[in-house]
Write a protein that binds this DNA or RNA. Structure first.
Length: 693
DNA sequence: CCTCCAGTA
């Protein structure tokens, strides 16, 4: 164990090495103390130094790329400087986007506090279900990038805004990529609009190249000296993070799970200086197993030492369990957090000094040939590895132990993670762009173009469900479908439900399926959970079972105790109530009245079929598996489905999951007659193709 | 016959 780490391979995490204006070194020692002023100084100082450069770049360039590590103040200080410099005068707003709701709220609160105003006045924010702004008064508006894209449907040129700052652009979420493409398009019509792209890594150079339109002829004529420079300005700002020494494994490890356990114990046994440990593994199973192993091994090894305090962290945990990790460890004890990728960006834990990085995460890959999403354990990129390492240096200098060799790091790992848009099903994305008036999807200026196969699959499906016509233009139904913040097939189900007089039930089902899971985390109590689910189960399948759960929840007066009793996640149910309200309102705005079928489940199944007919599967003669109508793949009903043991002849499903087999999750009973009825064209065509084959 | 990285309108 003592020689586990290759001593020669220790090296500090690299920082961006591009030269920028006014760049100066800040001695790390300046941030070592933790006196009362610590917070204020470390947030204000780094970006303040660049204030004049930043404002100059924004004034003279259409696009400014700001590279800065976490905590440099780019998200909180820069909007204030823009405001002070007059960018919000004349009734125009400064928009600042974040990829996550929690980040929007946090940053808005901080900025409002620093400016000494209440949130919702000069500084406001807008996220789903929460609009906290005052029209006419709000000058700086924080919002998720998804909300800004929604706003563009009503105001395609974002004419309210003088500046749009897109934060965390390096994460390259689908919405960030779409937003950046759209902003580039808007700037052709509105050269005065300023775009600021804030990113933590050097991939920002690619983004800058994407926005460099200096070689193109401007679309809008204006005196040359009035137009901003169309070559993006770039600036780098220091963060407040400390140096992290990185240690690579000397040999490849055979099991990252066991290696992470032994590394944790070594840190503990070798009496490394105090500081908590964060371990990155891939999934809930790994995390729970590691927590178990570390706890028992630590007890065995050292009865008299105060020992380790081990907590799991993953999205499926209840809010209460997630909060445990933020509690400081008692004096003399070391906290160990075993986490999935959630701790890489979404959750920041104070006090971490050691990071153990397995080098893997679960990543989603969409295969356009089979039209199936798979979740696979895959090596992370070097950018992810640096991000994970950086988590050790937020409070003081730290160490990162990588469970892979330096050779693997340098030669086998990709520099950047493949952008999500190139790993995704594009059905929703294509519809969104169509709704924004972008007719030629293939020629859209993508930051990273998805494969043409993936785009064709999306167009095919949108055509099949009647959202696009033969010219790939939005149909009237398509315009309605685009109004809903749910997947197109789900929106189609909602819109079909009124003709079956079950729109009230349909919005409930859509809301229930839009949350991650309504069940509490069930590790070690699988039987209990199965029983809880079975008590709501009906022969029609999972959708109607969910309906049953929701109606029971209402009958129980939305009681948290009732949820606890039935192993239902109360927070998830609160979200369901909100989503349901929003979807109902949208349906009513389109002129539909919310009607209930009063227990006639046939109407509900027909509405589900009308939305999801492209996900129809037929039981094979063996009676053991299903055959997907579209594509012909062999499928199985997932064991979590209430239909797992009943095997109806025909089913439609909401999603597929691939492990060793292809599993259909959220399955509903259907009927071949209904399939022909809701999509005669689609099934006629399939039938002909099968006879010819 | 047994599964769920992370977000979001």
């Amino acid at each position: 164990m003592a020689n586990f780490w290759k001593p020669g391979s220790e090296r500090p995490v690299t920082r961006p090495s591009v030269a920028f204006r006014g760049d100066e070194e800040i001695p790390l020692g300046l941030f070592e103390d933790s006196s009362g002023n610590f917070e204020k100084r470390r947030h204000r100082h780094p970006i303040y130094k660049h204030r004049h450069d930043l404002l100059y770049l924004v004034k003279t360039h259409a696009v400014t790329v700001v590279i800065g590590e976490t905590g440099c103040g780019k998200s909180t200080q820069l909007p204030q400087y823009l405001n002070e410099a007059g960018w919000a005068e004349g009734g125009r707003l400064i928009a600042c986007t974040q990829p996550r709701r929690i980040a929007v709220q946090t940053v808005a609160l901080r900025v409002a506090e620093e400016m000494g105003v209440t949130v919702g006045a000069e500084v406001g924010y807008s996220i789903r279900f929460e609009e906290v702004t005052t029209p006419g008064k709000t000058k700086i508006k924080f919002l998720t990038d998804g909300v800004l894209i929604r706003e563009m449907m009503a105001d395609p040129l974002l004419s309210k805004y003088s500046v749009v700052m897109v934060d965390e652009a390096h994460e390259r979420s689908v919405t960030t990529d779409i937003l950046l493409g759209l902003l580039k398009k808007i700037q052709k019509r509105r050269p005065e609009l300023r775009v600021i792209i804030a990113s933590a890594t050097m991939d920002a150079a690619n983004v800058a190249a994407f926005f460099d339109t200096s070689a193109e002829k401007p679309k809008v004529s204006a005196a040359k000296e009035l137009l901003p420079d169309r070559k993006p300005g770039m600036i780098s700002v220091e963060g407040r993070s400390h140096s992290v020494r990185v240690h690579f494994s000397l040999e490849p490890v055979s099991s990252y799970l066991l290696a992470s356990v032994s590394t944790t114990l070594s840190i503990h046994k070798l009496q490394e200086p105090p500081g908590d440990i964060l371990i990155f593994l891939t999934g809930q199973d790994d995390v729970d197993a590691a927590v178990q192993l570390i706890t028992t091994e630590a007890e065995k090894l050292n009865q008299k030492s105060p020992g380790l305090l081990v907590w799991p962290l993953y999205a499926g945990l209840s809010r209460g369990d997630q909060e445990l990790i933020f509690r400081p460890a008692p004096q003399g004890r070391r906290k160990v957090i075993v986490s999935t990728n959630i701790a890489e960006t979404s959750v920041t834990i104070p006090g971490i000094t050691y990071v153990i990085d397995s080098g893997f995460s679960k990543q989603r890959f969409y295969n356009p040939l089979t039209d199936v999403d798979a979740l696979v354990v895959a090596p992370i990129s070097r950018a992810s590895a640096e991000q994970r390492a950086g988590r050790a240096g937020r409070m003081r200098p730290g160490k990162c132990f990588r469970l892979y060799t330096e050779d693997t790091y340098c030669n086998d790992m990709k520099a950047e993670t493949v952008p999500e848009i190139q790993r995704s099903n594009l059905v929703s994305t294509v519809l969104q762009l169509k709704a924004l008036g972008i007719d030629n999807i293939m020629r859209f200026d993508w930051l990273a173009p998805p494969s043409s196969e993936a785009m064709i699959r999306a167009l095919e499906l949108l055509f099949a469900i009647g959202v696009l016509d033969t010219d790939a233009k939005l149909t009237p139904l398509g315009h309605q479908v685009a109004e809903f913040p749910v997947e197109p097939m789900m929106a189609k189900m909602l819109l079909s439900s009124s003709s079956n007089s079950c729109s009230s039930e349909a919005v409930t089902i859509a809301a229930m399926l839009s949350v991650q899971s309504i069940w509490v985390s069930s590790k070690g109590r699988q039987r209990e959970l199965d029983d809880a689910r079975d008590s709501f189960a009906v022969v029609e399948g999972d959708h109607v079972t969910y309906l049953n759960v929701y109606e029971s929840f209402l009958r129980a007066k939305q009681s948290p105790q009732w949820c606890h009793q039935h192993l239902i996640n109360y927070q998830a149910m609160k979200t369901v109530v909100d989503v349901r309200k929003q979807l109902s309102r949208l349906l009513q705005q389109l002129g539909f009245t919310l009607k209930s079928c009063e227990g006639d489940t046939k109407g509900i199944l027909k509405a589900i079929t009308a939305g999801f007919f492209a996900n129809a599967a037929e039981l094979e003669p063996s009676g053991e598996s299903y055959k997907l109508v579209r594509g012909g793949q062999q499928m199985h009903i997932h064991p979590s489905s209430v239909l797992f043991r009943t095997t109806p002849k025909w089913v439609v499903f909401h999603s597929v999951m691939v492990t060793e087999r292809m599993y259909m999750r959220e399955v509903a009973v259907t009927d071949p007659d209904w399939l022909f009825e809701v999509a005669p064209h689609y099934f006629e065509r399939r039938k002909r193709r099968q006879t010819h084959a």
